[in-house]
Simulated assay, not measured.
Amino acid sequence: MKSIFIFLMLLGVVAYGADQATPIAVTKSFTAKYKDAKSVNWWMEEGQYQVSFKHEGFSKVATFKKEGAWVMTTTSIPIEELMPCITDLLKERYSEAVALEAEFVEKPASEKYYITVEVTEEEIKEVDGELTEDFSLSYVNLLFNSDCEFLGEEQQDQ
């Protein structure tokens, strides 16, 4: 009886592990798209397969549907490696802001750069007859397409 119980427990663990494995269609799709990927790490999130990896010197995270269809890839880009047209616009429009991170997001129908900047806002108030300075920080995502065209900004939740 005890051996049957242990067998059933092991069978359950094996079945659970099999359910968690990345489907062959997903790994084939990934390998076809990123042949030279290194440091590959898979997990599942919200019913889709996510993979972090290194490719062409960059850290990336890709998302695939369980059928193997590629959904998107996010590439972390060092700020100093952004295209000059983006850094020029940052200096021009956001000279007081500090660029914190940059990501290039590829989807089947679009490619966009997301640059997260920290904006310090200063407000001078008069309180009880005295002037005081109040500083607040906000975070903004600046969006650019792959042709360096500025698409706008999104306020980021803190």
Rank of each mutant, 00 (worst) to 15 (best):
K2R: 13
K2Q: 11
S3L: 14
S3A: 15
S3I: 13
S3D: 13
I4D: 09
F7W: 06
F7D: 08
L10R: 01
L10W: 02
L11E: 02
G12I: 01
G12V: 05
V14Q: 05
T27A: 04
N41G: 08
W42Y: 09
W43A: 06
E45L: 09
G47E: 04
G47M: 04
Q48K: 13
F53I: 07
H55P: 00
E56K: 15
G68Q: 09
M72L: 14
S76V: 08
S76P: 00
E80H: 05
E81I: 02
L82A: 00
L82V: 01
M83L: 10
P84F: 02
P84T: 05
D88C: 07
D88F: 09
E92M: 11
R93Y: 12
Y94H: 15
A97V: 03
A102M: 05
E103C: 09
F104H: 12
V105N: 13
V105Y: 06
Y113T: 00
Y114M: 13
I115Y: 03
V117R: 01
E118L: 14
V119L: 12
E121V: 14
E122S: 06
E123I: 04
K125P: 00
G129K: 05
E130G: 03
T132N: 06
L137Y: 10
N141Y: 12
L142W: 00
L142A: 04
D147H: 10
E149F: 02
F150H: 05
G152C: 10
